[in-house]
Design a protein around this nucleic acid. Structure first.
Lengths: 345, 345
DNA sequence: GTGAAAGCGCTAACAC
DNA sequence: GTGTTAGCGCTTTCAC
């Protein structure tokens, strides 16, 4: 019996008689043949049946960050729908070991929110497979799915301005691959390797400039780790340097939740004594009524998957920009005057 | 120049002069050669550099269930440490499509909590690669990592007995692949295809039997979907059938959280009017002080990864049983008499 | 330090 | 409906 027949028995039942097919499969089992080797098949068919996912952080971080999780879920949904596996590329952000990217047997990559200068991203782009970037960075000629971070946060900031806030501080996520837990001056902001953070800061500036508040005078505190603890300590740093702040704008909900915790610890009521806002729209934020910008993270993941798995390449790189929504929660209100803070309304 | 030299340039820098290596790599880049094809390399080296993960549920479900998430994180950690990718196998529980298992180019599988008769599990076991099962099922000759579900929940039940509970109801997860949202009689319990649920029910029986409560008289309500909504409706079903219940034992924290919601909705205070317990030790349960059994989910994932990636095979299948801990939270207390419930203490 | 040759296991043309 | 042949792209002895 020839190899073709056996191959057909497994892959194209319609090419041979059911009886023969049955016989082949039975014999195979009896002989202990485990079925076609997937790797050899992939080599031959030039299809791995899997999508690679690259994240900056440790893989395990993705399982803790609600926004990343939502993205992951959407992407998994898309992969599932297309019968594609999801191959999480093991990346150790400490060691710049790009080998894992080269070793991944996948038909394409989704890159989720990495810095402009990420060596792993460079490795992905050097591979001859389609790639979709989610959020950041923006790379010429590469498909991308994201939101308009700048415009979205501008609306949020304008909301605060309308409420009367002028003396605000900002807490943001890491701006580059090097750790800088502290104030971030304008030059560092502008040199940021994370487009999303850059855009969000710029968006805040867009709102406050016209309101007569010079951006350079708005304190911005950066944190490398994206945790509520970071948000808390950053808020503390802001309030230490200027107790007169009436609002803290965080560039993520996680940071905002930490900021609220810190405010409460200091006896400040939110929002009566201090307004705090976030960005993302994660479930826990929603639960406490966080004022924030909601972005459709699940839809983002799904869109990334669809972009990658859909029609190969209609000539031009595609760009999907999803809508966001301003969530006017209960953590923002009109600011109190300093007098009110000390003596009551 | 020969293929060997090029291959060496990529894989064994020590086999040729740095100068030559550099020249090779430069030329490659100039010619647009993207580096060795990972699939071809895998075929040749017989190593895919990835671990397959099989889950019963939709992939996306894993990203919603906190216990599964903890497991995933631990497993990802182990893979990361070993430089292995994590290949999530796309499984549609509706269609019994086993092909994805056969298509996955992986060096081994981790199977997380699937029923005894799962066809995907059978497909995994038919492949000539090492496999580790987490939680369930128990398969002869296959490595496994889990906990002693039976003993763990027995301790919890004994705690309730000590508090004085005798009239209790149980809410459990699905017992088989078919949907049965309702009471589960003893025969269905014993025929359950999910070993973990079977063991937990048996563990409760172990405690109540000696206390003089016949197991067959303890109502058990089953739910197919593992959600808080399921827990709520199941608790409702129990309370409807016997308003005199003093405690509801849920076999997972998720279900317990739902049960608490339902109790409150009915004006029952927890624990004063109704004791509710869970199982797992998820963060949200901890936050509200849920009385439960905590199991080390992250450690479980890590152990599964280590088992799979560690020393190949020391002759016998290995079994890792992790410790659990009874968490005496604030959702269990001494039961009120019926009179107290209506007329106050 | 370098090259020639073999073959990993499979599928897809193509002829029968 | 079945068999023959030719590679997919790579790594790895082994001889030079």
């Amino acid at each position: 019996m020839s190899r073709t027949t056996v191959s057909n028995a497994y892959n194209r039942p319609d090419q041979l008689s059911p009886e023969l097919r049955r016989r082949v499969l039975d014999t195979a089992r009896r002989l202990g043949y485990p079925g076609p080797d997937p790797v050899a098949r992939s080599l031959r068919t030039r299809k791995a049946g899997a999508v690679g996912l690259l994240l900056t952080e440790n893989l395990s971080y993705a399982f803790r960050d609600p926004a990343a999780l939502g993205f992951l879920e959407g992407l998994a949904l898309a992969c599932e729908g297309a019968g594609q596996g999801l191959h999480l590329v093991p990346v150790n952000p400490e060691r710049e070991d790009v080998a894992a990217v080269h070793r991944a047997g996948v038909d394409g990559f989704v890159v989720y929110s990495v810095p402009d200068d990420d060596p792993h991203l460079a490795a992905v782009l050097s591979r001859p497979v389609p790639t979709v970037v989610a959020d950041q960075p923006i790379v010429d000629g590469v498909d991308r799915v994201g939101i308009d971070d700048r415009a979205a946060i501008t609306r949020l900031a304008q909301h605060l301005i309308t409420l009367g806030h002028r003396r605000v501080g900002v807490v943001c996520m890491r701006l580059a691959r090097d750790r800088n837990d502290g104030f971030a001056a304008v030059d560092r902001q502008e040199a940021a390797h994370f487009h999303v953070q850059r855009a969000r800061l710029a968006g805040i500036a867009d709102a406050f400039g016209p309101a007569g508040v010079e951006w350079a005078r708005i304190p911005v505190v950066e944190r490398f780790d994206h945790t509520t603890a970071s948000g808390a300590s950053a808020a503390g740093q802001l309030l230490d340097s200027d107790p007169g702040l009436t609002a803290i704008i965080a560039t993520s909900d996680i940071l905002a939740l930490g900021a609220i915790t810190e405010a409460r610890r200091r006896g400040l009521r939110v929002p009566q004594d201090l307004t705090v806002t976030g960005f993302d729209g994660i479930p826990e934020g929603e639960r406490i009524g966080l004022t924030t910008v909601r972005q459709p993270v699940l839809e983002k993941g799904r869109a990334a998957g669809r972009l990658l798995l859909g029609t190969p390449d209609p000539t031009r790189p595609r760009e999907v920009t999803l809508d966001t929504e301003l969530v006017q929660g209960t953590t923002a209100s009109t600011p109190r005057t300093t007098e009110e803070r000390w003596f009551g309304p």
